[in-house]
């Protein structure tokens, strides 16, 4: 990019020119401080207290962090759940996105299909949760209805009440929501690969599968890095979809035996659930933050080394 190196006006104009950029960036910085940074710091402060928002705060030092990491097995459960969800869903959603992009790319009239694939990404997570809850309802869900019609199953399956199925459904939801997004990113990436590389390879006698593996995939590497990184960050914050899956249920939150309890769900339960432990919830968020930063750094490092 060219640097703008010619702000060369004299006199008063110049004075003004000096002020304008600060003036322009000020609202952003001010708002960020007011509505993001300050609340963040305040949450951090609260994380050292035992406080339910009503009675006075009690300073407990690192106790919240220590309890979370050493005593709270439910926290570890929620963390392993979330990590497992992310670990399973990302390769699938990225893979499906890549395949779909590869299929669509050579087509001429792809706008409609592109848009359809992208639809799940734009509707509200709570709508997705509600739809899946209805589809997988054991008694009057479409899935059981269709499957027993096709005689795939003889008895109706308790999808949402079974630990493993519940987990699988959350993973499916996550994949389903994001594959279109991955596809769009890959499609954009593909347009930027110059056709000369393909031509050259074709002359060397490469078939389309070889072209895909040896040219398209490596060329799309930056997109893959971007997608995996953002998917990790977003995946670790999963909450609304699984929670909505159980919105009408009388069961305790987190699904059967907490099999789909995610970190953020646990945070909401701890901070705004029966116990209302705001400090504890804040500490939980900061632990998640550290995990996200760690992941990003390790990932950046890994990808940087290979380059």
């Amino acid at each position: 990019m060219k640097k703008n190196n010619a702000i060369t006006l004299r006199g008063r104009k110049m004075q003004m020119g000096r002020v304008w950029p600060y003036l322009f960036v000020l609202p952003y910085l001010l708002c960020y401080f007011l509505f993001n940074l300050f609340p963040m710091l305040y949450s951090f402060y609260i994380s050292f207290f035992d406080w339910n928002g009503v009675s006075p705060k009690t300073l407990v030092g690192m106790q919240n962090y220590v309890d979370l990491l050493t005593k709270d097995s439910l926290f570890w459960k929620s963390l392993t759940n979330t990590l497992a969800m992310v670990a399973i869903s990302i390769p699938v959603q990225v893979g499906l996105g890549l395949l779909a992009a590869a299929l669509l790319f050579p087509m001429k009239h792809k706008r409609a299909m592109e848009s359809i694939m992208f639809l799940p990404y734009i509707i509200a997570p709570i709508a997705i949760g509600a739809i899946f809850a209805n589809m997988f309802d054991w008694q009057f869900g479409y899935i059981n209805e269709v499957l027993s019609h096709l005689q795939v199953i003889s008895e109706k399956v308790y999808w949402l009440q079974d630990e493993r199925w519940a987990f699988a459904i959350v993973v499916i939801m996550q994949i389903w929501r994001h594959m279109g997004y991955c596809m769009i990113i890959y499609l954009a990436g593909m347009t930027s690969i110059s056709s000369e590389i393909y031509e050259a390879a074709k002359i060397d006698g490469a078939n389309s599968v070889q072209l895909f593996w040896h040219i398209t995939v490596p060329q799309l590497r930056p997109m893959t890095v971007f997608l995996v990184l953002t998917s990790i960050i977003n995946g670790l914050q999963l909450y609304e979809m699984p929670a909505q899956l159980y919105a009408g249920s009388s069961a305790a939150s987190g699904g059967p035996q907490f099999s789909v309890l995610t970190v953020i769900w646990k945070f909401i339960n701890d901070a705004f659930g029966p116990k209302m432990r705001l400090g504890y919830g804040a500490a939980l968020c900061y632990i998640l933050f550290v995990i996200i930063v760690a992941f990003s750094m390790v990932f950046k490092k890994l990808t940087a080394e290979e380059d």
């Binding site: 000096r18 609340p39 996200i292």
Partner: peptide, 29 residues
Amino acid sequence: KFRYKGASLITTFIIVTMMVPGQISTIGY
């Protein structure tokens, strides 16, 4: 589009803060 002290710092700041999970500020907010 301006060159001044801090412009690149602010840009970096914005990029870094993209990674911060929103929930972290919820209670404080």
